[in-house]
Nucleic acid binder design. Structure first.
Lengths: 146, 146
DNA sequence: TCTCAATTAATAATTATTTTCATACCTTAG
DNA sequence: CTAAGGTATGAAAATAATTATTAATTGAGA
């Protein structure tokens, strides 16, 4: 937990920026809610408990910053807003998301079998792949059995 | 070309809706620009050439409708707007997109090797997969060699 | 021709997000 | 200690994509 905060501090320093209370509080909320996929408004509401004077614009700015610093990643579930999750350093790539069309639940998938596909694409299209985003749509276990 | 229009007409009829000049013109533009990934504003501008009295809201409604009818699909490239492309009936799944971080070019990938991955996920997570969206980010051939 | 629902253009309203701007806060030089 | 210069901030205004409202128009079927 502390580690990520230290990484942020360091990366900010390199850039001539500072780890302010607002930034610390925002990152804390995201870390405390690992597994959730909070949107900006939700993060704002939660951060306000620790840091009541924070402005929404600051939250937007902070999330942008954290994404640039490679600390969090943005998820777009086509629900009209951006959602965020902490990046776990233990993988090169992001994990994937299963989106249930029945209850809108989001399930994280740890399996990553895209390596072969990536290699094939890189060769075939002479394209240098840096990252990917993969979403599956369908019905979760609960919704399926109704 | 005519075929898709007929399919649309039929699906609209089933729903008690009509194939109006505005809807016909919108679908035509998308078909004529297969391979492009036009956003709503761009579609609006092009449709206006054929159908100058059309309103932007109608284009929005029509695109929503065409998506529901499974005639077109929406692509989200995180550039702040929705883009659309005609669905080619010759695949179960959508093709994938390579997005160049150098020049923002979009390249379509025909290879689909997700079957194994899907099967594994369906078993492991008891999730019934209906569709997927996969995007790769990186550098295209041109940008890579600069 | 008449009727009625579907459709539309125009416009207003909404929503998420970004920008502006004046102020506050640090850090360093003098 | 104080001034200067940068970064960060909250509040509010601005922007951009999209949706809702409304009143008029259209067109298929009785």
């Amino acid at each position: 937990m502390l580690e990520t905060m230290d990484i942020l501090k360091e990366r900010l320093k390199e850039k001539g920026s500072k780890l302010t209370p607002q930034r610390r509080a925002t990152l804390n909320i995201i870390m405390e809610n690992k597994g959730e996929h909070l949107n900006t408004e939700e993060i704002y509401e939660l951060v306000r408990k620790d840091c009541p004077e924070i402005g929404l614009a600051t939250v937007y700015r902070t999330l942008q910053l954290l994404e640039e610093m490679d600390i969090i990643s943005r998820i777009n579930l086509d629900d009209g807003c951006s959602r965020y999750e902490i990046k776990t350093g233990d993988e090169d790539h992001q994990h994937h998301h299963l989106i249930c069309q029945g209850c809108n639940k989001i399930i994280e998938v740890k399996i990553d079998l895209l390596d072969d596909l990536e290699k094939e694409i890189e060769k075939e299209y002479d394209f240098d792949i840096k990252d990917h985003k993969l979403k599956f749509f369908g019905l979760c276990s609960d919704c399926k059995h109704k």
